[in-house]
Deep mutational scan, measured.
Amino acid sequence: MSIQHFRVALIPFFAAFCLPVFAHPETLVKVKDAEDQLGARVGYIELDLNSGKILESFRPEERFPMMSTFKVLLCGAVLSRVDAGQEQLGRRIHYSQNDLVEYSPVTEKHLTDGMTVRELCSAAITMSDNTAANLLLTTIGGPKELTAFLHNMGDHVTRLDRWEPELNEAIPNDERDTTMPAAMATTLRKLLTGELLTLASRQQLIDWMEADKVAGPLLRSALPAGWFIADKSGAGERGSRGIIAALGPDGKPSRIVVIYTTGSQATMDERNRQIAEIGASLIKHW
């Protein structure tokens, strides 16, 4: 067993022997301040990774656009098919120029040779490549099948209805392509620590998230040296922004954090800054 596999296998073990965790309302004060600064709703939840206990939450059962955070769930569904012998990570998928959609920095470079399922998941999570996500959605049967996968996990809230990039439209009061912070946090925890996926697939999923290259201005910008984070960000229309993450000190994750916002007129930089400040408060009061 590799060191990384050992780390993920012992996530519940280490967490069980940690000192009790206590909620700190100071972080919620910052979440509410972010709402004021952005002029928009902000949803927040913080779960203990081992027990699933909610440590703090704000608007945990209000719907927010998922945006690209759905790509972690998508690759979880792909990995479940791999575990069941219905898919192979090494299978190569070929596609054409007509398949390319807006923001496809990886797939646009491989029109000639195609990409493997493993490479597509890596591109979808680490670079948020939209064509990679659409190609992977095709392998599982489309958005409705991802929703069905989530329902089978016990998540009857999260739903995907459309493809990239239309799913980022974020129309107010439109339930399409949305989740709730509580539902997303619980589902992410199941994917990373539950028995739904094999140990190898859980490790692969967290490795992809740990290698995320496009979430630097968010929670990662607030992390002290030595902290662990595996995350996936999302951005959408109407001032929408979000991030889902597993993080913790001492090089291992111990909490799940989900943050979503929508309806702001603020710039992307300002949305990023507010999420980073929430992260800084979380870490300060850990």
Rank of each mutant, 00 (worst) to 15 (best):
F228K: 06
L135A: 14
G90Y: 08
D177E: 03
N272D: 15
L136R: 02
L100E: 04
F58C: 15
L73G: 12
L74M: 13
K109V: 08
N168V: 12
Q265E: 07
F64T: 01
G226T: 09
G279L: 05
A280S: 13
Q265V: 11
S128Q: 00
E46P: 02
E56D: 09
H94T: 08
I278S: 02
Q97F: 14
I45C: 15
G236A: 13
R202K: 08
L150G: 09
R271K: 06
I275A: 03
F70V: 14
V78G: 01
E35G: 05
C75Y: 03
I244G: 01
T198M: 10
V78W: 03
A235G: 08
L79S: 04
I244K: 02
C75F: 02
V258C: 06
N173W: 10
I54Y: 15
D155Y: 01
A200C: 15
F149E: 10
V31P: 02
T178V: 05
S51L: 08
P253G: 07
I243H: 02
M184D: 00
T186H: 12
E46D: 15
R81N: 06
Q37A: 06
S128I: 01
R91T: 13
N134V: 03
L219K: 03
E195Q: 14
T112C: 10
R273I: 15
P249Y: 06
E62Q: 06
P165M: 10
T27W: 03
T126H: 13
E164T: 00
R202I: 15
D129H: 01
T131Y: 05
L167S: 04
N134R: 02
L100N: 04
R176F: 10
K109E: 06
E119I: 02
G236L: 02
E195L: 04
I259V: 11
Q204N: 15
V72T: 09
L120R: 02
D212K: 05
E169Q: 10
E164S: 01
I229C: 10
Y103S: 10
A124N: 04
T187R: 03
A266L: 10
D161I: 05
R159S: 11
E119W: 02
P65Q: 03
L150K: 01
P224K: 05
R220Q: 05
M268S: 12
L282E: 04
P25R: 06
M153P: 01
E119F: 03
Y103W: 07
N168K: 02
S96Q: 08
A123S: 10
T131E: 04
D177S: 02
G234L: 00
A148Q: 10
K53M: 14
D83Y: 03
K232E: 01
L191R: 01
E62R: 07
Q265I: 09
R63K: 11
A123T: 06
G279D: 02
I275S: 01
G251D: 10
V214N: 12
F149L: 13
M209I: 03
F70N: 10
K232M: 00
T107S: 07
T198I: 06
L74W: 00
Y95M: 08
S221V: 14
A245C: 13
N134P: 02
K284A: 11
L49N: 05
L73Y: 12
V72K: 04
Y44C: 01
G90M: 13
P105I: 11
R271Y: 03
S51A: 09
A170S: 07
I171W: 15
P25Y: 09
M66G: 06
L73E: 03
V157W: 12
H156P: 08
P25Q: 14
D155K: 00
T131L: 14
E26Y: 13
A230M: 06
E35P: 01
A170L: 06
S128M: 02
K30Y: 06
F149D: 14
G90D: 14
A246I: 08
G236S: 10
L47Y: 10
A280Y: 11
